[in-house]
């Protein structure tokens, strides 16, 4: 465990908590893509199956439980909360997630470290996480709605990606024989898509800023 990874995990967890708190505080999820949140929940469940039979550390176990519970909390709020569920842009959030899930399953079956159930599911979760933000990106490009996606949520997402890349560089230079091509390649793709998301976030923020400026 190095400081980059620890900080990366903390900012990743904080980004989910910040989004959850924002939804709870404003009782609204306007602009948030439920499909992306559901894809994240699938990523965490398919990645953390080893929660039940391999113990790596207390930190590892606690963080996995946190990620799974917090992502399901967001989904619960967006689907079932009396007030929040009415603010969900159902008509706009129409990305066909099958176009993401099916190719990730095939790719995980073809390219993996080991052809076992847990390993293929873990690899699937790595591939899926790299494209999971696409429904959110499409929704943002359609609505430019950044009411709930606060800037600290976006900043924390960016910090999570940047710190994880630093973590991989650090491990590459300090651990002999460390190489994770699957994680590195999908993590790079994920970071590229996040940069596109950040770009559209700034565009949306400026657009709203112009609209709200006193004429």
């Amino acid at each position: 465990m190095n400081i980059f990874r620890f900080a990366g995990d903390m900012t990743h967890l904080c980004s989910i908590v910040v989004l959850l708190l924002k939804i709870e505080a404003t009782k609204s999820c306007a602009g948030v893509s439920l499909r992306t949140q559901e894809l994240y929940a699938v990523v965490f469940v398919s990645r953390y199956l080893d929660l039940f039979f391999t113990f790596i550390s207390v930190y590892n176990t606690v963080m996995k439980v946190f990620f799974i519970t917090s992502s399901f909390c967001i989904i619960w709020y967006m689907r079932h909360h009396r007030i929040v569920s009415q603010t969900y842009d159902r008509e706009q959030d129409t990305f066909r997630v099958a176009f993401l899930v099916v190719p990730c399953i095939f790719l995980a079956l073809l390219v993996n470290h080991e052809f076992s159930m847990v390993e293929v599911l873990w690899t699937f979760s790595i591939y899926l996480e790299s494209v999971a933000i696409l429904p959110q990106l499409i929704l943002l490009q359609r609505t430019f709605n950044v009411d709930t996606l606060t800037s600290n949520y976006v900043f924390l997402l960016g910090a999570y990606r940047a710190l994880y890349i630093l973590n991989w560089l650090y491990r590459y230079f300090t651990e002999p024989g460390y190489s994770q091509w699957i994680v590195w390649s999908s993590g790079t793709l994920q970071t590229a898509i996040y940069c596109d998301f950040f770009y559209y976030y700034v565009v949306s923020w400026r657009k709203n800023e112009r609209l709200s400026l006193p004429s």
């Binding site: 465990m1 990874r5 995990d9 990743h12 990645r47 080893d50 391999t54 790596i56 590892n60 963080m63 996995k64 990620f67 470290h113 080991e114 390993e119 873990w122 973590n167 491990r171 651990e175 002999p176 024989g177 460390y178 190489s179 994770q180 699957i182 994680v183």
Partner: peptide
């Protein structure tokens, strides 16, 4: 050496 199938990262 590093074993890619050890899942120590989240």
């Amino acid at each position: 050496a590093f074993d890619p199938t050890t899942k120590d990262e989240l």
